[in-house]
């Protein structure tokens, strides 16, 4: 690679005394001294969260308040720091609303001491059940407290709109039966 020699401009006498620069600097800092403060005073004031923000991963319900996760464990698989732990379970055949989904998480833990907020779980989820939402501050007094269990994940996640209602369609097809 060619070396480009950059000519350094010789300093003038005044510049070599540092004084004009110091004066300039003092002027700048003086301006800031009286300028309005830019800091957000955190717990009372909170920043506006932009859309697409990756906060704490949460589990969401569909608009009918039903669990969306089917415990496929893809998020557990993809999670780079192995923060997610799922115990899959079977939905009993006599549960009217969700029996046809067959599978749902018995336990769902996200260890927020491990999570790196990468969003891969949200990316990979085939059921659009896990979302990184606005919540950005997690704290606790023990390691156990920093593990979000299923109920807490749903509490944090709430309900999000659904574009597909995949399982409702499935159930409708089942009730409709075959064409012949």
């Amino acid at each position: 690679m060619a070396v480009i020699t950059v000519e350094r401009k010789p300093l003038t006498f005044l510049e070599r005394t540092y004084l004009p620069q110091i004066a300039g600097g003092l002027k700048t800092t003086l301006k800031h001294l009286v300028a309005p403060k830019k800091t957000l005073e955190y717990p009372e004031q909170r920043p506006a969260i932009p859309t697409g923000y990756r906060g704490v991963p949460t589990l969401v319900m569909d608009p009918n308040g039903r669990e969306k996760c089917v415990s496929c464990q893809l998020c557990e698989f993809v999670c780079p720091p192995k923060a997610i732990r799922i115990t899959p379970g079977e939905i009993p055949a006599d549960q009217p609303d969700r029996a046809h989904v067959e599978k749902g998480p018995k336990a769902f833990d996200i260890d927020m001491l491990r999570c790196i907020y990468c969003g891969l779980c949200q990316e990979v989820c085939p059921e659009e059940a896990i979302f990184l939402q606005n919540q950005f501050s997690m704290s606790g007094y023990s390691r156990e407290e920093m593990v979000n269990h299923k109920d807490r994940l749903y509490e944090l996640g709430g309900t999000l709109p659904d574009a597909h209602f995949k399982w409702d369609k499935k159930k409708a097809a089942e009730e409709h039966g075959n064409a012949h």
Partner: peptide, 8 residues
């Protein structure tokens, strides 16, 4: 059935 994904 539904115990664990095989890739784990």
């Amino acid at each position: 059935r539904f115990k664990m994904r095989v890739w784990f």
